[in-house]
Structures are given as C-alpha cells and as structure tokens.
Design a binder for these strands. Structure first.
Lengths: 279, 279
DNA sequence: CGCCATGATGTTGTTTTATTACATTTAAGA
DNA sequence: TCTTAAATGTAATAAAACAACATCATGGCG
C-alpha cells in the first residue's frame, strides 16, 4: 500500500507518539522532505528513534528511505503545471513544458471521464453490426488510429477521413450500426451534419468531442474531452492525446468484454504481422 | 527542467568527471537512490565533493536533496497500479490503469529523450526543401498526425501510409529533402528498406523508433522511444502516444525556430479553418 | 490495589554520511 | 611555455541517522 494511504489507515490503531507523527506528516508532507530527523522529532515532540522506528514500521529501511518513498508518492500526486512556451525557451525547456502539459491534460481527462458513458459506448460497439469512424483534419489521424485498433476485432470497421465519403457512408448505415465521430471542438459544421444524417438513419452515434458542443448535441452519447487548461498553443495537441487514450480505454474494455474469442483473434493478428518483421 | 532531461542535455558540455557521473546515474538511476555518496563516488571513480558539486549544479541543495528529486521523477515513470489488466476489472479500473500506464510511458519517454538528437532533427526539418513522412500500420496514424501539424508551415509536406507509395517516394527524394520514418518496433522490414532507399538518394532520414533497431541503424538520426515498462499489453499503445508527443515537441520547436514568419502563417491557417466552424 | 511483565518512548553515544575548506592537478589562453 | 583559472581531489568537520541501553507507561494478574 502507498505510504500516505498506509498512514491514514494506521492512524487509529497506532500508539500515541506515532499518531502525533502521522498527523504532522499528513499535514505537511512536502515539508517533511526538507526536514532532518532531529528537527522533525522536535517539531512533533517525540524522540528521534521514535521517528526512525515509525519509518521502519511503514516499510522503509530508515528515515532517509522513508523520505525517498514519500517524495515518489508526492511527485505523482502533484501534476506539475506547465506555463506557456515562450520564444526564448531552449529546446529542452520546450520538451519539458509539452510533456508536462500533456500529462496534465491526461490527468484532467481522466478525472472528467464519465464511466457511465464509457460503458454505454462499449455496449454499443459490442452490439454493433459494423463500426464506422469519422474525423476531419487533426481528428482524422485519431479516427485512423481507432480503426487500426478496432481491426483486431471481428466486427467490420471502417474509418473515413474525407467529408464526401463520410456523407456517403451515412446513407449505408443501419440502426444496428455504430458511428464514432471525433472532433476536438465539436464545432466543425461538416462533421455535425454527418452525425445528424447518421442519427436519421437510426444508427447509434458516439461523439468523442467537447461536451455541450453542437456535435455533442447531435450524438446519441458523448465521451467528453474537456479542454483542460486552455493554453491556446497546446490545447489542440494535448486534447488529441487525451482522445487517443480514451480510445485505448474503449478498445481495451471492449476486448475484455469480448473475452476469449478475442484472445484467439488477437493471436491470429499477431502471427500475420510477425511475418513482416526483421530478424 | 527535469533532472533526467537536464542531465542528458548537459552531458555534452560538462567536464570529464561530471560526464562520468551522468553516464553512471543515467545508466542505473534507481540504484543511485539507495547509494550513499561515498559509494557512488567510488563506483564512478571520482571524489565525493565532485558528486556533491554536481548535485548543486543540477539545482539541488546537496546530495540527499538530489536523491529526493530523482526519486520523484522516477516515480512518475513507473505505473503504481497493477500493470496488467485482468478480466475481472471494472470499467473505471481499466480506465485508471490505462491512463496511468500512459502517463508513466510519457514520463519515461521524456526522461530518455535525447535533446541533442532533437535539435538535430529540428535543424534538418528546418533546412529541408520538402518533408516526407512514412509509417505503416499503427504508425500510419502517427505519420498522418505529423503531416497535419507540419501543414501549418510553408515547407511542402506529405505523408505516405502504404508501402508502394513509400517506395516510389524514395525515388523522388533529393539530398535537400528530409524523411521521417515512424515505427514502434523498428523491425518492420518494409519500412527499413524505405529508409535505406531514401539514404541512398542522399536525403536526411530521421527515425522515430526504438533505438538500436534495424530501422534506427538505417537512419541518419534517431529519436528514440524506449518501451519503458515492457507490459506487452500496453506498450504498443502507450509508446504511440509518446511518439505523438515527441512530434509535438519537434513541431513546436520548429515553430519557435521559424519565428515571426510562422506566426503570420499560423494566423492565415487559423482563419481558413475558422470558416468551417458552427456559430 | 499494587506488582510484574511487556511494550512504548526517550537518552546517550557511535557510526555513517554529507559538507566545507583547502591543496593539488589539469586544461586553456596569452 | 608560462600564467591563470577552472576542475578535481584530500582531509578535516559538521550533520545526520542509528543502535544500545535506560526509563517510563500500561495492562494483566495475584
């Protein structure tokens, strides 16, 4: 178990001195990192060996090791926020900021992910006679990525990335089919019309888009990707990543639901790909 | 900036002793955490104060503080939850695992990103008369994503996602051109041959692939994406995300380098896209 | 109700670890 | 080649963590 959780959990059944310690550490975990054992002991009002023994009880090898572990946990808990990129930034600064912004965006997408909607979407994909995917511009590559992942299943799947084909597609959709429409803004008129046409034909339309947008309104169900931090420069990039991860989740959940059949099918796909490898 | 990135970045321009240190730390970062300064100094073959001075140079307050920071970064790079998804997992559990694995993969990619290679790649893209992108299978969508991003610049850019077109493309490449080859494994024979053909024609070939792979060897320069944790199930998914983020970094750095010209061009692109929006 | 036993906590001294101050070496430039 | 500054190392010092032992509290049992 994690240190923080362990401490919260153990607080009740521990001795008086250790309770004081736990209270103090949970209150200011960050501060503990820069505090030597003597100062911490004094601040809490216990002796140094008590602190040390406590650290061991928590599974660490001693006080320094305890701090190391705590540092690790705290680092996860605090997603570092990136500021905007400025012209003066060196290459590695740019990289750091983008990686951080992306991580933050992922975390935000995760928090705002609607599990219920996700289950519904998986349900729809599982039942579908055929799956179609639509995206324009940047979302086209997301649609293709999704297509590639879904190819592992035995449900017919197709991605369309140009508007003409997308509109033609809607004509062939049946109520048993499922269409996944991808758009970051949800304000691209063309794709909204496609979703509408698909609805008219009775198909289930899942929107992977911004909640509340015109596209979202046109869909049967929506997997929302909030913009998160609205740094104009990153948002489209980072939210595309979030979309891709949501698709990962969607596909993986679907795979679990399909169960054993899927395992066999996956094997077959892997074998057919292996033949193209070197060495 | 992150320690790992900082170290990679600084490696070139630091003194001999510090280079040895950096090599050693980057080689076994986890091990450093449980090593006192004396042992580390001895293992590397430098004196203790050298280690200490190095830690300060990296922005820490001393060796223990350095370890604390390193622990934080390394923690991000390792997923904390159980790695593999099991059939019994609930929907939200699956989502949590995938988001976490992706975040870990990103962090790991960031830590192992070679800033020097990145600068070189940006340089090459900046000078290029024309840019071509190649990817097959899952990497096809990455190539298309990159194409979309690069379309914002005024250098001609094209992505090819089928092997025939890719081979034909190599015939038209000139030494002033730049080809970006994308493959997670780097073992897809077809794409390696494309890279080789492109090299033969004198073009600069950048590989976005696994370091040390056949494809990597065939390229002029490599942007490595290490697999990170080798969880068979996620790796291909998460590393694709890492590739996309690296492309973000590449493109953003390129944008900064192009400077003002780019700002104007970006405005024009935004206006032309705005016309397609609702409301 | 008080005494013993056991576990918790504290005190003191030792050992390990990190840091400082200073000496030496190495490399860079004139 | 000599000068000078930076880099690195040595050795002493300070800080920190830890272990061994002493003391205290608490709860069971006569």
């Amino acid at each position: 178990m994690s240190l923080m959780a362990e401490m919260r959990d153990a607080e009740a059944r521990r001795s008086k001195a250790e309770r004081k310690l736990i209270d103090h550490i949970l209150g200011e975990p960050e501060a503990v990192l820069n505090t030597p054992i003597a100062r911490l002991a004094a601040a809490v009002g216990v002796s140094e060996p008590t602190v040390n023994r406590f650290c061991r009880a928590m599974g660490a090898r001693g006080f320094p090791d305890f701090k190391l572990r705590l540092a690790g946990e705290l680092a996860r808990a605090r997603p570092s926020m990136a500021r905007d990129i400025e012209p003066g930034d060196s290459g590695s600064h740019v990289a750091a900021k983008i990686f951080e912004a992306t991580a933050a965006s992922l975390s935000s997408a995760h928090n705002s992910l609607d599990t219920g909607a996700l289950e519904q979407a998986v349900e729809a994909l599982d039942r579908a006679r055929a799956i179609a995917l639509c995206g324009l511009g940047a979302s086209a590559s997301v649609a293709l990525d999704a297509q590639h992942k879904l190819l592992r299943f035995d449900t017919p799947v197709v991605a369309h990335t140009d508007i003409i084909n997308q509109r033609m597609l809607t004509a062939s959709l049946r109520p048993e089919d499922c269409l996944l429409c991808i758009s970051y803004t949800g304000r691209t008129r063309a794709i909204t019309e496609v979703a509408q046409l698909a609805r008219d034909s009775g198909a289930t339309v899942i929107g992977l888009t911004s909640p509340g947008s015109p596209l979202a309104k046109a869909c049967s169900m929506v997997l929302g990707v909030e913009g998160g931090e609205d740094t104009d420069l990153y948002t489209p990039m980072t939210s595309r990543i979030a979309q891709l991860v949501i698709i990962d989740v969607l596909v993986t959940t679907l795979a679990l639901r399909k169960g054993d059949d899927f395992a066999d099918h996956l094997e077959a796909v892997k074998r057919s790909v292996a033949a193209t490898r070197s060495r």
